[in-house]
């Protein structure tokens, strides 16, 4: 049951991402990406990470994508007919790189290294929080400083002159 759900979510994720990167308008691309991020959040939940799933919905689909949407609508980009869609010439190196990644994947799957036993263990929020604040307390401080620097930098870049 859970495995079936996982494969359905994987299909939604990959198709949504594919539609997002080939969309003609940036707004449509953002909406497709929000769909695929919701699928990704459910996959995180299935993988036993409920906190990360909640943060994915709140921060990624809720904040970052809405920020993108705000900026795209604020900039009043030129009409979509004038927005240059990449030609086949531009897609060629992208297809080459993606093909290299997929080829490496195929080679890796054909070599059959060693079968790791399937099965995932759920990590309770208690263990997560214990590791976060006991073991990685310095990292939390560093991240808070980083967010402060980003805030100051964004204010500096966005000020009127």
């Amino acid at each position: 049951m859970e495995a079936t759900l996982f494969y359905i979510l994987a299909a939604v994720l990959l198709i949504g991402t594919l539609l997002a990167i080939t969309a003609r308008q940036a707004v449509r691309s953002i909406v497709y990406l929000v769909t695929s991020f919701f699928a990704l959040a459910l996959m995180f939940y299935l993988l036993g990470a409920p906190l990360i799933a909640a943060f994915e919905v709140i921060i990624y689909a809720g904040a970052i994508m809405v920020l993108f949407l705000f900026v795209i609508m604020m900039l009043e980009l030129e009409s979509p007919e004038k927005l240059a869609k990449p030609h086949f010439k531009n897609w060629l190196p992208a297809l080459l790189l993606a093909g290299a990644v997929v080829g490496a994947l195929v080679v890796l799957l054909c070599s059959r290294l060693q079968a790791v036993p399937p099965g995932f263990t759920e990590i309770p929020v208690r263990q997560f929080a214990f590791a976060l604040f006991k073991q990685y307390g310095v990292a939390v401080e560093v991240v808070s400083m980083q967010l402060l620097f980003a805030l100051v930098g964004a204010l500096y870049l966005g000020r009127r002159r």
Binding site: Y7, A10, L14, I21, A84, L109, V116
Partner: peptide, 30 residues
Amino acid sequence: MSVPLSHVLIVASLMFAMGLGCVVAWRANV
């Protein structure tokens, strides 16, 4: 859940390849 780890890694690497392709193909649009 009875999904092997390799399937998760396959999904992740396909998604990574798509993102890489997006960056390279749309390099005229920030």
